[in-house]
Design a protein around this nucleic acid. Structure first.
Lengths: 191, 191, 191, 191
DNA sequence: TCTTAACCGAGACGGTACGTCGCGTCTTCTG
DNA sequence: CAGAAGACGCGACGTACCGTCTCGGTTAAGA
């Protein structure tokens, strides 16, 4: 255990404390009640230390998002013979977030952050496993002839997340059945 | 039997001035820079007159939205033999908003408002003509056998708007081609 | 030529309710928390009815003062052979007000009202019985040779009230002994 | 051991600007039109900086009073063989304030402030030189046998200021002659 | 008897100021 | 010498009252 005298030794600890406090407050209060002063106080950190490293509230959220501090879940998509079932597994993971207490509020907060800050917007879809897992699974389905060749693979993830986002903005709940119906419609080859 | 109250009555002129100023500032500044004080000043109105009738910024936006003060466009969907073409007409109208100056910012602002306020969320889809026009056209297509019977008509509007919203949050542009591709995929009967 | 007017005449009930509510709120809240709106509500009266008949808060207090609604006491000065004792009776009455709960606050409120409004200032001394009783008793003392001829009778009342006012503004209490000492000094013929 | 706190220290420039602006507005507008916002604007300071250090309008006035920012005069009492003349010198200084333009309004404002705020009340008499000069002179007179031993030295200052205050509240003017008469009555040994 | 004008209650209106919160910057002291 | 602590100028918040101005309803003179 080395104890250094000078240099930004404390920085890592401060960074950790700040992001942790950010995630905690974001869950507790939502995005629009998230304040830099509140984070600084809760993290035991000077405000300047935050401003030195992050340009805005949104950037804090973006970092939390990128490091998986907001959704403590894995969004892996399995790869069986049944693509519809596979995607529904992913859907269940996403809906688990919304069905948790404050789940809808959490997603709405995230959308608010994304609307305000480009960096959050960039990671929104990605953080829910769209690029890394969902799109790959769909692409594999196309390659395997499971889905038609003209399937817009890129868009499908956007379609699913987008639909859920819009339903959440409209304060709808019980997304499970409509979303399953939609997935089946999108992924079932019709004669 | 009417419930009657004596005393002065709500000023129509003030209501008009407030909503007009709200719409103007919303376009000019975006949602997060929209302030009650700014609206009051621009409308030549006391702050209290706003607070007396609207509980929040969001409610003002919701009213503007409901009265078509934010999008001075009609979102009617034509009804020809070609449903894909018909829906693409609607798409062009929506994209016209996004391609206008500040168009993307406008939509993002609207999303921010919807995330914060339920009333705005309620009207978001509706105000873009989804319920009134788009869903009806799709339903007619199903009824006419133009589309398969299992088409999730209700969801299609959400899918299209949701996808556009998500793309906008991700700061994508050039929605035209991907969206056309998606529409064709959704509405073209596959063998 | 008579100036004629039709319509109902000033409502005595409203006037009564307003002054009563004013006196009640003045005792309860003090002058600076006294509001026209509060009086109107408590009196069950429209604000306009107050503004129609009184130009200011101060005028309301002045009327209350003039009608003895603030101090429900009589400030009569007895007339025995001992002028010092007589004046001390008056002093006790005045001090009774200050020793009542909120008594000091009450006098300070009255001073605040007097500072703001000329009509209150006019009646301040008078309402405490100075002109009507105290000065008369002192003048009688001079006439009877009880006091020296050069006694400034007019000022003596001002001196006593003024001293009490100043002590109250300075948040002093226990005025009794110092005031008695002062009275004795002023009214005892010295060799 | 001193109690030390890290962080920035109170800005002397801000304090100075605030008190200066307070005194200026107090003279210009009087106490009841004195507003925190007005002071902040005139001092080029944030409102919070005022609220951080002073609990109320009254506290600002009290500080101005204590630092001699309201009366730019000296209230020294000379010490000659003629105590009446000496006190009249002091009286002239006080009356000079009242005879200046807005002088009566100034004193009334001060009284209003004193009625509202204890700190102002504490300094009211003191600031007019009563404790520091007048009472000392009177006490010296008693010690020298110039005045009777039973003279209530403490009260005499209150009597003079109190009388002037009361006359001012009653919107009287021309205090000079009555006050001189009173002083002579109080300080002239009678046979 | 029937206007009709002033009264009344209620309270909406354009304003001003309140006292608080949070912003992003800047300064000081301490470990 | 980096960082916690926090003061600063600023701007907006939502509230309380101000004094004025409608409203609809009621009441008493005078036509």
């Amino acid at each position: 255990m080395k104890e250094h005298r000078s240099g930004p030794v404390r920085s890592a600890a401060a960074r950790e404390a700040i992001l942790e406090a950010t995630a905690r407050q974001f869950h507790r209060e939502g995005y629009d009640r998230l304040t830099i002063e509140g984070i600084a106080k809760e993290a035991g950190v000077g405000k300047q230390t935050i401003y030195r490293w992050w340009p805005s509230r949104g950037a804090l959220i973006a970092d939390c998002l990128a490091e998986g501090r907001l959704f403590p879940l894995s969004f892996d998509v399995p790869h069986t013979a049944d693509i519809v079932a596979d995607v529904e597994v992913w859907l269940d993971t996403v809906l688990a977030i919304l069905n948790a207490p404050q789940g809808n509020e959490l997603l709405r907060s995230l959308v608010a952050a994304a609307a305000e800050d480009a960096a959050v917007g960039d990671h929104l879809g990605a953080s829910l496993g769209v690029d890394r897992s969902l799109t790959q699974r769909v692409q594999a389905g196309v390659n395997a002839g499971e889905l038609p060749a003209d399937t817009p693979t890129e868009q499908l993830g956007q379609v699913l997340i987008g639909t859920i986002v819009l339903r959440t903005l409209g304060r709808m709940t019980d997304h499970a059945e409509p979303m399953r119906q939609l997935i089946r419609f999108l992924l079932t080859p019709r004669p």
